[in-house]
């Protein structure tokens, strides 16, 4: 992610590969890559981690579409 005033390229979040253990309901249903769970104006996606089966990961921090795209996170494993 870029920081204000820097000249690093802006990395779109969707370009960062999510951790392979990240799950949400949409991944089981919208398997053809068509829709998704997030909608215009509201995102009520509920995520969980396959390692813990909970909404908190092995590092005891929250599981989230954003949080689980941080390669620096100790439990992150790329797809």
């Amino acid at each position: 992610m870029s920081t204000e005033g820097s000249d690093l390229p802006v990395v779109e979040e969707s370009m960062v590969v999510p951790c392979r253990h990240l799950r949400n309901k949409g991944m089981y249903i919208y398997t053809d890559g068509s829709g998704g769970e997030s909608h215009d104006g509201y995102d009520n996606t509920i995520y969980w981690c396959l390692q813990t089966m909970k909404s908190f990961g092995p590092d005891d921090d929250q599981v989230d579409g954003h949080e689980c795209r941080q390669p620096g996170r100790s439990c992150y494993e790329a797809l």
Partner: peptide
């Protein structure tokens, strides 16, 4: 609130 997880957003 959805408890300890997110998910409480809704269309409005």
């Amino acid at each position: 609130t959805g408890g300890v997880s997110r998910g409480a957003q809704f269309p409005l």
